[in-house]
Design a protein around this nucleic acid. Structure first.
Lengths: 149, 149
DNA sequence: TATTTAGTTGAATAATACTCAATTATTAAC
DNA sequence: GTTAATAATTGAGTATTATTCAACTAAATA
């Protein structure tokens, strides 16, 4: 039997959703055309980047979650975004931030288990420009993407 | 004129969206009823927690983003989830994780600016049970919630 | 005040999700 | 292996919903 679930998850993780205008209109007691107009405005000015699904990642074989604190080599200090942009396409990475303080970057990463994380570090993170990393492993996730778990 | 935008943002941040089955069906060349069935299954087994919008937070007055590393007092070690659950309802908090290592918890927080963050720390974070915090301020966000910015 | 621009809204239409029943595939029991 | 039960796929029809459009109202600008 064809298992389309992985494809579905992949699409829903980054988009392929849409606002429920009628439901919001009821909730706010406003005409749906008014919401339509205002939502389109938010989209046009780029305030809304995507509509997507939030998962209980334990249940879709992405139970291992970690924050990766990254130290860049001195010659990358000037352009940490360059390193970041090379990481962006990796679907295991939920977020990428350039930060202040003891580290230069922080990633939030989701993979299936510790083994997969080891491979991720080996193949994706261990690259020229990244000097040192510190992993904070999540033991329990209470909230993610503004959604309570 | 009535400004419903804040209400819209608030609703869309945590839900009030729905999958675009027809669009995915085209993309995957599968009948939409098959997708319907599989998506409903994911929902029923709790794999999908919500459908929501992702914003360019700079454009909706939430330009200040920080990771908060938290050290708990020894008498809270046993039940870090208790502290976490009290934080969950705060809409400024994007994520809450209990972690291993030098800290017990990490939050991802979004507010309008540094002033608002100061107030957030004062009013929400500074509470019994939390001994020490370290803030990693995001200078540049390249990706968030699996969505490229 | 006049003029333009931005925002609101109801009515009509187009698109989409959803329901249901029939069919096929998979699994479990004997 | 055969049978029974369960799970998954699918097309046709219906109910909802998003979208379009034009009329109207409010706000901003000169």
């Amino acid at each position: 039997m064809k298992d389309i679930t992985p494809k579905l998850i992949s699409l829903l993780k980054e988009g392929y959703c849409t606002p429920q205008i009628a439901r919001m209109a009821k909730k706010l007691s406003e005409p749906s055309t008014t919401l339509q107009y205002n939502i389109k405005k938010l989209e046009k000015e780029g305030s809304i980047k995507a509509y997507k699904a939030v998962f209980d990642y334990k249940k879709i074989d992405e139970g291992f979650c970690a924050f990766v604190l990254i130290t860049l080599s001195p010659n990358e200090y000037g352009d940490p975004e360059r390193v970041g942009r090379e990481l962006i396409k990796h679907s295991e990475i939920e977020s990428i931030d350039v930060i202040t303080g003891d580290w230069e970057m922080v990633l939030k990463v989701r993979v299936s288990d510790q083994d997969a994380y080891y491979n991720f570090v080996k193949n994706v993170i261990s690259r020229k420009g990244i000097t040192k990393i510190k992993t904070l492993t999540s033991l329990k996730q209470l909230k993610t993407e503004f959604v309570e778990l």
